[in-house]
Design a protein around this nucleic acid. Sequence first.
DNA 1: CTTCTAAATACAATCGATTGTATTTTTAAG
DNA 2: CTTAAAAATACAATCGATTGTATTTAGAAG
Lengths: 342, 342
Amino acid sequence: MKKNTATIHDISKALGIDSSTVSRALSNSALVTAKTKDKILKKAIELGYQKNTLASKLRTRKTNTIGVIVPRISRHFFASVISGIEDAAYDSGYDVIICQSLDNLEREKQLIQTMHSNRVDGILVSVSMETNTSDHFNEYKKDGFPIVFFDRPFMLKENINVIIDDYKASFEATEHMIEIGCKKIVHLRGPKTSELYNRRELGYKNALKNNGLDIDDNYILESRLMKEDGLELANKIARLGNIDGVFAANDTVAISTMQYLKEKGCNIPRDMAFVGFSNEPISAVIEPSLTTVGQADVEMGKVASLLLFELIKNTTDKINNQVTILEPNLIIRNSTSKFSKK
Amino acid sequence: MKKNTATIHDISKALGIDSSTVSRALSNSALVTAKTKDKILKKAIELGYQKNTLASKLRTRKTNTIGVIVPRISRHFFASVISGIEDAAYDSGYDVIICQSLDNLEREKQLIQTMHSNRVDGILVSVSMETNTSDHFNEYKKDGFPIVFFDRPFMLKENINVIIDDYKASFEATEHMIEIGCKKIVHLRGPKTSELYNRRELGYKNALKNNGLDIDDNYILESRLMKEDGLELANKIARLGNIDGVFAANDTVAISTMQYLKEKGCNIPRDMAFVGFSNEPISAVIEPSLTTVGQADVEMGKVASLLLFELIKNTTDKINNQVTILEPNLIIRNSTSKFSKK
DNA sequence: CTTCTAAATACAATCGATTGTATTTTTAAG
DNA sequence: CTTAAAAATACAATCGATTGTATTTAGAAG
């Protein structure tokens, strides 16, 4: 049933005009008379001609397409970054291919290989949580394949990164909790393999130190920051006793943990203040609404894209090893309204 | 800086073996000796060979890629459908290209054209809210380009659709509200251009009729079902007076409207019961948690994919005009716990 | 050591668009 | 009306992999 779409050769034959002229006419080249252009365009429409982009890409060695790999497209932060990327790409005439690694290293490898094999002009990556080596990227990078990393800082010394200032964000979030009167603040961090969470922890620790509070490693709880981790974390927090604040490295685990603590009879924010990270939409709607860190998402997508486009255009790699740091902003909501209501 | 990736011809030259043999060796054809295969494979690795998929696709006229167009990838329902699609595609050896129309018709047109131009083997579409004509699909369908529609019923008589039983879902949701004692139920519906919302409205109306309640067209409020519509809808509902139940055609607007009504001092569910549609994750977490309709999301992705694969394999269009209807399930939460708590 | 068959490899065309160069046509100048 | 220059079009190679067919090589049989 599938008919073959018309090609420039069909138009060429139908009109007795060489296919090279047809090609030039369709790309509106100045080398073709307006009159012949007209004939060709009419026939193209008549035959339902649709350019075979594959052939074009093969010949020109340019796909005008960039690839994006994120852990999960459904996460609001990534969806927003993607909006920023799509906007920038649209303005520059690039197509965008979106894929999710589901935080799985094997899948990430597979995706890069597929994208490279499809000869995208470059890729934007927020690495998976399991990614702790850059071998699978270097393989392509050494041939000059343009890659820009965003969100999750990755091998800062060797790559181009666009990130937010996680340290500063954590510092300010923690300091905010201290200001409203928290004395014993637990930090829920992510896997040690991720530099990101190391930075967030450092911000937390330094804020404590700067404000004369003790750092207790028992107050730092590690998990994969998934919804499912909430119960265990809530139990651990309850067992610690006297905790009056929780600073989580993402909203998902903050909300989940908060729910379980509420079920245990803990009143938030009166007994315990809560701060998350990422500004998931759900954070604004839950009870109490969650104080969290906004991550300049759309902007991050735009900035990362522009860097990638530069990299694609450039034949040298002079813009390598560049880290662009965007400003986070603390969004204060009811989960830290503890004393301000007094 | 960008080096060209090695091709089969580079391997061919390096070994003095014809490129056709190299090609066959790399695809592990039985026509090549194990010994030569070995030499070729070694050299391929040495040169960092990566198949140029574009060339392969062009030659074979097969891309092993399907396209997916959804309104928004960040919507939980679509993200789940996509999971189902990716699983099915992985099992069948297809790659998946995901795009979002942002509920914009022009963008939708653009995306189909780009995908077709890239010669994907077929596409899965949940049409945008603005889409009320099928012209831009028919253009491709008449050439036998495989398209399967899902989620939003679209020209059922002419196309292949995978949908849930919206009528039944609405009917059951409304009946559930009547059972718990609601007498004056408002329905928040989406644009008239979408058949989907017509069906949901019909389910609502018939449930009222079947239970001896009056149908009042003033109780049916139309909007784009966005978060931003919540305020106006809440005002309208307040003005109507005596409303004791709201059945919304999606969760987003249900939640937003509910928030505004709460701010006006309305106690939910005591004064007014609420039911949404789609089972967005946020619905489980808000206060009160929202009763809603689960839409067999992952399953829908799988079923739609399998149909598309069939369509791609088939040379006839005997499976055309087929509607697959999946079962919805009502998820009862606190927003309708009105009288059950008595 | 031939001769025939089967297995392995080489040749060459192809997918559809692009582009440098050659050829033809048009236009303008003499 | 001729001729040179400029403009328009045609020719042909190319991008990289695939595949039908032709050719060569190897192995077996006589």
